Computed example of a mutant assay.
Amino acid sequence: MKRVLLIIVMTFIGMNVNYAQEYKANVSNSKLYVSGTSTLHDWECNVKDFQGKVNAVIENGKLVAIKSFDFSFKVKSLDSGKSAMDKKTFEALKEEKYPTISYKGDKVTLNNGKATFYGQMYIAGVSKSFETSVDVNLSNGVLTLKGAEAFKLATFDIEPPTAMFGTIKTGEEVSIHYDLQLTTK
């Protein structure tokens, strides 16, 4: 009996430690913003508050898989620093009817510090498949996701905002930029 118990204990010691953990966005140490162009100048809107979580599999202290992810923010948390522009942005994104933008998925491929996230992006009442390339790093318990992804507003049936009776018009393409830090705490 002692011999069987010893074999079982040795088997568990020799196995890799493999477990899934939920990492949540640390907003104060992260940056998320949207950028674009217009006929007047380039622009940027910071996302002041957002939520995010990643279900990651860790083996011997290394990231080996991401099982799922979920990121979202309220449209009204977009801040360009210009109230007139923010108002036009909220209108274009149909904020009153669709107050939240979200990106959720359950497929991520990892390859040497790079990842591709596959999921559904939901903007202004429209849900589309969305894929983005991400630089991924796990160090000292902090999971970092960095990257940017451009897309056309028309993909989500969004009319580019205009001002000054249509003389100033937002470009058709915008980019989401992120430098996110996520922790288990």
Results as ranks from 00 to 15, higher is better:
T167H: 04
N112Q: 07
F69S: 11
M10I: 15
S102R: 04
N46W: 00
S72E: 08
Y19T: 13
V47W: 03
Q120R: 12
F50P: 00
G171V: 09
V142W: 12
E22L: 15
L180Y: 02
Y178S: 01
K2A: 13
P160K: 13
S28Q: 05
S77N: 04
N60H: 02
S83L: 02
K87D: 12
E149C: 00
F71Q: 14
G125K: 06
W43Y: 01
F69D: 08
N137H: 10
T37P: 00
K97N: 05
V108N: 05
K114A: 10
S28Y: 06
L110V: 05
T167C: 04
P160R: 12
Y23I: 06
V27L: 03
K87H: 12
K48Q: 02
V27T: 14
W43C: 06
N137T: 05
W43E: 03
H177V: 02
G141I: 10
K53H: 09
R3S: 15
A92I: 13
Q120K: 12
V174D: 03
I58N: 07
E173G: 02
G141W: 10
S68Y: 04
M164A: 13
G61H: 14
I58Q: 07
H177K: 07
N46I: 03
A56C: 05
Y33F: 09
N137F: 03
A84F: 15
Q51P: 09
F73W: 09
A150H: 02
A154M: 05
I13P: 01
D106G: 09
F73K: 01
I13N: 10
K114V: 11
T184S: 05
K114S: 10
D79K: 11
R3W: 12
W43V: 01
V47M: 06
V126R: 04
S139M: 06
K74E: 15
G171I: 03
K88E: 08
V57Y: 04
N29V: 00
G36M: 01
V64P: 07
K169P: 03
P160E: 12
M15Y: 15
F151Q: 00
